[in-house]
Nucleic acid binder design. Structure first.
Lengths: 202, 202, 202, 202
DNA sequence: AATGAATGAGCATTCATTCAT
DNA sequence: CATGAATGAATGCTCATTCAT
């Protein structure tokens, strides 16, 4: 059990992160169901008791892993988008950055696809949707709205556009996770940008 | 032990299908990891021994369930596409039919998303990709090529286009599985068609 | 998990009883906390999985064991008491039978003493009190009341008398469980009968 | 490791007592099995490592707790008994004091009942009997013998009487621990005194 | 004197699987 | 075909204990 501490120690934080990373790696390599405490511990050369010591059970570990996953990807994309100041540039940056992150973090996105199947109740699914998807769509919506207000984007529903663009990114990622030779990430990134731009540019 | 497969009896085939459907329902409702033989058996009022009798282990059941899933969706889409004889109509029909199937078979697609995380080795993932994705993309590629040959589609790479279109469909499905209120399926279907048409029409 | 069956099969009932008896024996010999599924299974030459198959978890096993314990003792005492038809005879029979049962079933009463400490919440304790103690006290109260009505017992509060008499029995049992050489069961039985009779006889 | 016991410091002794009291409280509230080092430590706001530092393992802690329990009760009863100088007064004082202590220390006696089930071997049980029960019975025997010698008690076996009287006290305590509404402690105290006096007074 | 990190054995429980009937 | 009994391996988790700091 994680000791209830006001300020987690340095060791504590480092261990937690180390275990989370090992968990993601193991999930990516062997699948969510095979990623047992024992397996993760083995990959780190520690005992499974230590995992139980640092996390409040499996749910806590998985949740923390998902958090890590999402915040890293989100931070990466946000930074790249922020480098641009026009709606067109930002939209292209969002798509390009998303694909770049995917290409550079195969294990992470593979783990993510596995974790999609880890929710057992509709409530957990909705919660994940709110935590993981909604921020992405909201980001895209904001870019869309800015473009519309500035008059550089053609009329369209930002909500639907956001969902469809994110869908394109995730869908390609999915195909690529299953078989990296089945789809050319760079080409897909380019094509999606083209498609979206042709649709929304005034 | 699975009985010899040379000539499956009628009863045998019916039982298998019954079990597969119950498995899909259970996976959709409770998640892949919760869908144990015992749980599936309970939902059917039979014993788990009987499931083991009709399937060569869990892998066989899951594989068969995925097959069922894919062939039903594929058959539905194929039929709808075949009703059209021009590339534009076929492309729109493919997208529309895919979304319609999704909307009408929530449990099935929910199960599918859960099953995405059920593969433990890269080989299984590649095999799934070949069985599940490749036929869809091939279908889309064929429609694309016909349109290009007929001169009604603008120049583009059919392989990449197929991947991106399928990605858009799957990605929206994913968001909708997690939270049906998060995305409007009909609007997304419409938007994806618009986007694709604007891109590929000459 | 126990399969939900309308009528438990013969094998099922026999196995359950066999496991319960082994559990009581193990508790008596090694203590409640040491009586793990593994230990009980080992003493029977079966696997612990089988115990889990026949009982709905540890709580179910322990509860069933206590039930067995109480009903056997109760049945024995009731039969001995019923052989008498006067209040004096019945009261003496109750005490004598209780001590005789204790003397002849050391393992059972040793297990019972251990199980006294197995309740973790006040609610469980109260429930045990209702199930285990109240029927004993009620039996004694009924004997007392009959004696009072027949005018053979001196005036006294049947409720308090019942509690104190049962207390004497249980308290001696406790001392004898800890060290069989520390107290002479037969002498204690005799003395308690004498004491009670001297108190309640008119 | 326990620090050398030759001259325990003041702090050391205080800590030990503090931990023992917390342990008793926790056992009384949550049961013997739930009273883990972690739980006891949590209730004190210290770490479980500190408990291990002050006690030579769990057995040492439990043993010390029992010692504390017994010596407190014993001291209380001894003092009350010593206030009387005749056998009759002392016998009544012993019973009355025992019940009074019980009534005023519910947590302690609840813990004691739980601890009855904490011995895993016959040897431990016998040792407990010698430490806990024998002194009580010896005290009662001494009172009995004095009464007999002084000619105020009727002829009877002091050993058996002692066992039965103590049994009555413990048995009522047991019922009261399980359900405080099930038995009236004061009435039981009174009744036991009456019963005993009627039996032993010449 | 006290902590936080780590261990390793043991726990109840789950589950796919086997098999005699 | 179908069942119920039984297995054995694996899982998450708990806990007393150890120890460097």
């Amino acid at each position: 059990m994680t000791p209830p501490r006001d300020r987690p120690t340095f060791t504590e934080a480092a261990r937690r992160q180390q275990i989370i990373d090992a968990a993601l790696q193991t999930i990516a390599e062997q699948g969510y169901t095979q990623a047992s405490f024992a397996e993760i511990a083995r990959s780190l050369g520690i005992t499974k008791g230590l995992i139980a010591y640092h996390f409040d059970g499996r749910h806590d570990l998985i949740t923390s892993a998902i958090q890590t996953l999402l915040s890293r990807q989100s931070a990466y994309v946000k930074e790249r988008v922020a480098a641009h100041h026009d709606a067109v540039g930002r939209m292209q940056a969002y798509i390009a950055a998303s694909f770049d992150y995917i290409a550079q973090h195969r294990a992470h996105v593979a783990a993510l696809v596995d974790l999609w199947g880890s929710f057992t109740s509709p409530l957990e699914k909705v919660a994940f949707s709110q935590t993981a998807y909604e921020p992405c769509r909201a980001h895209l919506r904001a870019i869309m709205r800015a473009g519309l207000e500035q008059g550089v984007f053609a009329e369209c529903d930002p909500t639907v556009m956001a969902a469809v663009i994110q869908a394109g990114i995730d869908g390609v990622m999915l195909q690529w996770v299953f078989d990296p030779t089945a789809v050319d990430l760079a080409a897909a990134s380019h094509e999606l940008q083209t498609m979206v731009m042709q649709r929304i540019r005034r």
